[in-house]
């Protein structure tokens, strides 16, 4: 399938080696995730194959244990509000930048993207010092603001990408037909960029949902998030409850990926650039 029809036997062999190598890399990528999932259904608290027996006890543990429940709840609250802030501000900024007449647009874009590049420990320590001065440490607001910052680059990138294929004559047509800028935005622009906005929001949500370093510095035990709870669990002793939490998160990730793919297809269809 890979080798062209004119390939010599030696070439065919090299294509085979190439395919085998790639198969091993795919195994490397997906293997660890596949190995950890069945262990969460083990009836015994050690990590060996074959499984001694099947049980849902670690899932029951996850959903009934007070600490995990609070962590799940905190993660949900923080991620939700961080996503709302990041998506709102990020979409506005992308709309502004895409109009093509903002002075120093390149510099501004670099600044807006930089939270993605700066090592997260530096962000965490800097905010730990800075937030202490204004009393934001150990508060939900502090954690939400910090996670919103980390999420905005993703929104800016995805919305900007959607806007590069955006046909500006559409909004001009709306305006010439008497629509106010707000009506034109609501009825023309927003539906067209919605897939980009949603996938940006999903990335922002996941960024907060998975974030552990900033949470370690800024959150008190009251704001303990899911990753932080997992982190302290891994540090002490990996309990199978952690593998249950991990498995749930993998399903969450798969669901997210599916949504992103559907959004991408929808966006292509709306813009008429794909099949």
């Amino acid at each position: 399938m890979l080798a062209p029809s004119y390939a010599t036997p030696r070439e065919k062999l090299s294509y085979f080696v190439f395919a085998l190598f790639c198969a091993l890399v795919f195994l490397f990528l997906i293997g660890p995730i596949l190995v950890i999932m069945p262990l969460s259904f083990s009836s015994e608290p050690w990590f060996t194959y074959p499984l001694p027996g099947l049980s849902l006890r670690w899932y029951i543990d996850f959903f009934t244990d007070e600490r995990w429940r609070i962590a799940l709840q905190n993660s949900g609250i923080v991620a939700l509000f961080a996503t709302l802030i990041a998506t709102g501000l990020g979409t506005l900024a992308a709309l502004g930048l895409s109009r093509g007449n903002v002075p120093f647009a390149g510099l501004i874009l670099s600044i807006l993207i930089s939270p993605m590049i700066v090592p997260v420990v530096i962000v965490a320590v800097a905010m730990f010092f800075g937030f202490a001065a204004v009393g934001l440490n150990n508060t939900y607001l502090g954690l939400i603001l910090a996670h919103a910052i980390l999420g905005t680059p993703f929104v800016v990138i995805t919305v900007t990408a959607t806007l590069t294929g955006f046909d500006r004559t559409l909004t001009r047509a709306a305006a010439s037909l008497g629509a106010s800028p707000w009506t034109a935005f609501r009825t023309i622009t927003l539906p067209l960029i919605a897939p980009g906005v949603t996938s940006g929001a999903l990335f922002a949500f996941v960024t907060s949902w998975d974030e552990v370093v900033v949470a370690l510095f800024l959150a008190s035990p009251d704001q303990r998030t899911l990753p932080r709870q997992m982190f302290s669990g891994i540090r002490e002793q990996i309990s199978p409850t952690i593998t249950a939490a991990a498995t749930l998160l993998v399903f969450f990730a798969a669901l997210l990926m599916l949504t992103l793919e559907l959004l991408r297809r929808r966006s292509e269809r709306l813009r008429g650039t794909g099949g």
Binding site: L97, R99, G100, L112, I122, F129, G130
Partner: peptide, 24 residues
Amino acid sequence: RSFSLVAPLLLFVLAVFALPIGLM
């Protein structure tokens, strides 16, 4: 008008991200 769309996020990033890093 374009800049006023960018300004909220820019101010947010400068105040909550760049300023603490500068102080560090």
